[in-house]
Simulated assay, not measured.
Amino acid sequence: MAYPDGSRGLKVADEYGYPMYRVIGPLWATAALAARGPAPDVLEQLCGLLDKLPPENQCIQMPLYRILLATEFGRIGQIERARSFAASAATLMKQTGERWAAPEIYRIHGTLLSREPLRDDRAAIRMFKRSLVSARQLGAVGWELRTAISIARLVSAGGSASGRTEAQDLLISTRAKFASAETSRDLREADDLVRVLN
């Protein structure tokens, strides 16, 4: 398998005797490799790399690799497979105690639960709430903002008036944790959603 975006890093891994980086390097680049496509083929090859890693209790970042794959399977419409990877990421996180990516794992799992087939908005909101709690415990305001955005997206598509107000208040309070002049794609989307929910 060729990795156009990571060929230099893979070469360094070979030269200096770090074979494991031939496995974890591409997994870290899941989104970039899937974007170059064809995504289904690339994702299947990346899934094969998981089998080359040490057992879960001997390898860090396993929950991260699984949630990256979940995101990309969701992007190409393989929702059930994406949900399976998201659930396994959460399970591994509990088993290993590696919780630094917990806010994103819960947020992405919630996003996948809010999509068809078998859409379950209540389960999605429960995941989003877990994500918020985890982000606040970690002081991860960027991930807190992403979760607030995910909640706002969900309720803007048909939530109750009280749910829309609650989502708007959450966005405003989370946005306030950033400098008013600061900007990013997430911050711009948050600002746009505040206006949509108004």
Rank of each mutant, 00 (worst) to 15 (best):
G142T: 11
A123I: 07
D121C: 14
A152W: 04
L138N: 08
L138M: 12
E144I: 08
A140T: 09
L154K: 05
R146H: 05
V141M: 13
A135Q: 07
S131H: 11
R126F: 04
L132V: 15
I125G: 02
E144P: 03
A135W: 12
L132I: 15
W143H: 08
R136H: 12
W143V: 03
L132T: 14
A148Y: 04
L154S: 03
R146C: 05
V141R: 15
R136G: 11
D121K: 13
R146E: 05
S150D: 03
I151H: 01
D121R: 14
V133N: 08
R136P: 01
R130Y: 03
D121G: 10
Q137H: 10
A123S: 12
L154R: 10
A152Y: 04
S134I: 01
S134V: 06
W143S: 12
L145C: 08
Q137K: 12
T147N: 06
L145G: 06
G139L: 11
F128L: 08
R153S: 02
E144R: 15
R136K: 15
S134P: 00
R153I: 07
R153H: 07
S150Y: 06
W143M: 08
R130F: 05
A152R: 05
L154G: 02
V141Y: 14
I151Q: 02
G142R: 12
G139K: 15
E144K: 15
G142M: 09
A152E: 02
R122L: 03
V133D: 11
L132H: 14
Q137V: 14
M127L: 03
V133G: 03
R122T: 07
T147Q: 03
S131K: 09
A140E: 13
R126N: 09
R153A: 02
F128K: 10
A152G: 03
Q137C: 09
A123F: 04
L145A: 13
R153C: 01
S134H: 06
R153G: 02
R126T: 09
K129A: 09
L145Q: 10
R130T: 00
R126V: 08
R136N: 11
E144Y: 11
A152Q: 02
R153M: 00
V141C: 08
R126G: 02
I151A: 00
S131L: 08
M127I: 05
A140Q: 14
M127Y: 05
I125V: 06
L145T: 10
R153V: 06
I149G: 02
S134R: 15
L145E: 09
M127V: 05
S150F: 01
Q137L: 14
G139I: 14
L132M: 15
R153D: 02
G142N: 14
R122G: 01
A152F: 06
T147F: 03
A135D: 07
L138Q: 15
D121A: 14
R122S: 03
I151G: 00
I149S: 02
L132C: 14
Q137Y: 09
A123M: 04
L138S: 13
G139Q: 12
L132Q: 15
S134D: 09
I125F: 07
T147M: 06
M127T: 05
